[in-house]
Simulated scan of single mutants.
Amino acid sequence: MTAEPLTVVIADDHARLRARVREALEAGGCTVLGEAATAEQAVQLVAQHGPRVALLDINMPGDGLAAARRISTDHPDTAVVMLTQSEEDEDLFDSLRAGASGYLLKDTDPADLPGALEGVLRGEAALAPALVSRVVQEFRTSRPRRSAAASLLTNRELQVMELLASGRSTNEVATELFLSTTTVRVHVSAVLRKLRVTDRESAFRVLRGR
């Protein structure tokens, strides 16, 4: 049986970089479904093609972080990986909280990209080696009230999970937070994916550190 191809959308406002990345991905057996120069175009391409991975520049016009949040929320079957020049801690952790499964630097050898994206789809995090120690340190020094697992979630996702954990139903959570029930379920799906669990009870246990 032929393995499912690794389909990718590339989003970066630098055409030359997109071309280099595309060449490397296609040489590694990936299928590039489209290229975008802005965050809005990236979201539209993901909605149109449903790639397995969206490779996003954090600083492209329209805000790469905003695109990461929208894609992670609206298209949870598409893994988001940031490809950026920024080594700032704030950008790194904001990307992970926005739903990104990886954070790679633009000085990464393009030939390594296909393997990194394949690893993401196997459930591995794709992180630039220079940044791994920062993630470990952040988790070690997380604020007492915010566990390492919780730090991966957005504030809205935490609100949803805290209300569900208190015994409220999906409809009650939606009413309290002025959301639709569909949006609540999308948030829950995003939490399960980020925490790598299959049900709400398991997510509650992870968030409680049990």
Rank of each mutant, 00 (worst) to 15 (best):
Q41P: 02
G64N: 09
D74Y: 03
R52Y: 03
V160Y: 09
A67Q: 08
R140F: 05
G123D: 12
E176Y: 02
A24P: 13
T175D: 13
R185G: 00
L33R: 15
R97I: 05
V8D: 05
R210M: 12
A130W: 01
Q48E: 15
T141N: 14
D94M: 09
P51Q: 06
A149M: 10
R185T: 10
G29V: 09
A68R: 01
E35A: 11
A37F: 03
S151R: 15
A111Y: 05
D74C: 01
R97K: 14
L163K: 13
R122V: 00
A3T: 14
V8G: 05
H14W: 00
G99A: 05
D63M: 02
V186D: 07
E162S: 12
A24D: 04
T181I: 04
D94E: 15
R134G: 04
R200L: 13
L192G: 04
E23P: 00
A98T: 06
T2H: 08
S202K: 12
L131Y: 07
V188D: 04
R18I: 04
I10S: 04
A3S: 11
L56R: 10
R145F: 07
V120M: 02
V188E: 15
V160Q: 05
R20W: 00
L117Y: 08
I58T: 06
C30Y: 08
D199K: 12
D109F: 06
A174F: 01
V173D: 08
A148H: 10
L195D: 07
T198W: 06
L192N: 06
T175A: 15
A203T: 09
Q41V: 01
P5V: 01
G50Q: 13
A68S: 09
S72Q: 01
G119P: 11
L195V: 08
H187Y: 14
A98Q: 10
E40L: 08
R146N: 12
L56T: 12
A54M: 01
R196N: 13
V21T: 14
V186W: 03
S180F: 08
C30F: 03
S133F: 05
P129L: 10
R122M: 00
S101G: 11
S151A: 15
A148L: 02
E176T: 12
D91V: 00
D74F: 06
P110K: 02
D57Y: 01
G209M: 08
V120E: 04
T170Q: 10
P76F: 03
A174D: 09
G102R: 08
A79G: 05
R122S: 11
R210F: 03
A125S: 04
L17E: 09
D109P: 02
A67W: 06
H49G: 00
D12S: 13
T170D: 10
A42D: 04
S166Q: 15
L113S: 02
L92A: 11
E172P: 09
A36P: 04
L33Q: 14
P144W: 00
S189D: 14
L153V: 08
R140D: 13
A165E: 15
G29P: 12
A67F: 11
E138A: 14
D63R: 06
V173P: 12
D74I: 00
L6C: 06
D12M: 07
D57G: 05
E90A: 14
L158V: 07
Q41W: 01
S95F: 07
R143G: 08
E162N: 11
L92W: 06
V191G: 11
T78W: 02
V9F: 07
Q41I: 00
